[in-house]
């Protein structure tokens, strides 16, 4: 799948943003006044910035409000609802804390649940697609939520919990990669079933419909980076897990904590890039790719 920068930015930024909002909603840490303002501002900037970035991917962003209509059947529509609800509830919760110094705990819990639900709905947009075996797997919902929770703890300064969970996240990610490879290799959709000509013999793509590319080959038969996948996986784990853990284990300093967050962010972005670049859509079979 083509790794569109707008979608990668969206899933990275909003994942971390909603993760931070989740922690703030649960009261980790319990903040007030200016400190609360800054924490919430970062959370909303990341989550909202991600959502705005996602609209750059649309052909007709001016019609984006129509995407609230099909929540009964569409995960993308559910994501729109969950994101709007999470922002609204967390906005109210944050405003009460910042301006009136009143913490309504239950409002925070609801906001935290909606924030995590938003990340879950994002992941389901990918997981529901049978056409991409690597996504049609248990790992996107589990990993998207795990990255949000761990990234949220990291940004909320919950160092003692964040360190062991970062390590667990690294292990979970490696297990997911291995199992995704297995799932993709075991896919029962092949050029033989795609053309139905497998009953005669071995099918090979002889000629494409045209000499140039098209929307399908640009969007779904992306294959530039697969050869660098292994290197990128290692870089992604080092940046997202190893570097932050080392920095957090050193004597605490705000600059080190900031570096840990930046490194984690870069690692997650690399992971999301791979999430798209490695995913193979079954339509690429028709094009002999």
């Amino acid at each position: 799948m083509h790794p569109a920068p707008s979608i990668i930015m969206f899933s990275t930024l909003s994942g971390l943003g909603f993760g931070l909002l989740t922690m703030l909603g649960l009261g980790f840490p319990e903040v007030s006044g200016w400190v609360a303002f800054i924490f919430f501002a970062i959370g909303f900037a990341l989550a909202g910035g991600g959502l705005i970035s996602a609209t750059f991917h649309l052909g007709h962003p001016e019609r984006a409000l129509k995407s609230f209509t099909q929540w009964r059947s569409s995960w993308l529509s559910r994501e729109a609802w969950a994101a709007a609800a999470a922002m609204a509830v967390m906005g109210l919760y944050a405003a009460l804390i910042i301006f009136t110094d009143t913490r309504i705990a239950i409002l925070g819990w609801i906001g935290a649940a909606l924030s995590l639900l938003t990340v879950f709905t994002t992941s389901m947009i990918y997981t529901q697609l049978k056409t991409v075996p690597r996504w049609n797997h248990w790992s996107p919902p589990v990993l998207f939520m795990a990255y949000a929770i761990v990234g949220g703890l990291l940004m909320a300064g919950q160092v003692t919990v964040a360190v062991p969970l970062l390590v667990a996240l690294g292990v979970l990610q490696v297990v997911a990669w291995v199992d995704q490879d297995r799932k993709e290799n075991a896919s029962d959709t092949t050029l033989a079933t795609a053309t139905g000509l497998g009953t005669i013999g071995t099918v090979k793509a002889f000629e494409s419909p045209h000499t140039g590319g098209n929307y399908l080959t640009h969007e779904m038969a992306f294959r530039v980076a697969r050869k660098h996948a292994q290197t990128l996986k290692i870089i992604s784990v080092i940046l997202a897990v190893v570097v932050p853990v080392i920095l957090l284990l050193l004597p605490f300093h705000h600059l080190l904590a900031l570096l840990a967050v930046v490194s984690h962010f870069a690692g997650v972005a690399a992971q999301r890039w791979l999430f798209f670049a490695e995913a193979k859509h079954v339509v690429s079979l028709y094009y002999g790719r």
Binding site: L58, G59, S67, T131, V132, Y215, V283
Partner: peptide, 26 residues
Amino acid sequence: SDCIGCGLCAWACPYGAREMDPSEKV
């Protein structure tokens, strides 16, 4: 007139039957 050009339907189709128009973005 309701299509926002998100492209998700083209991802969902295994046959490559849907293409986003490069000019109209629907």
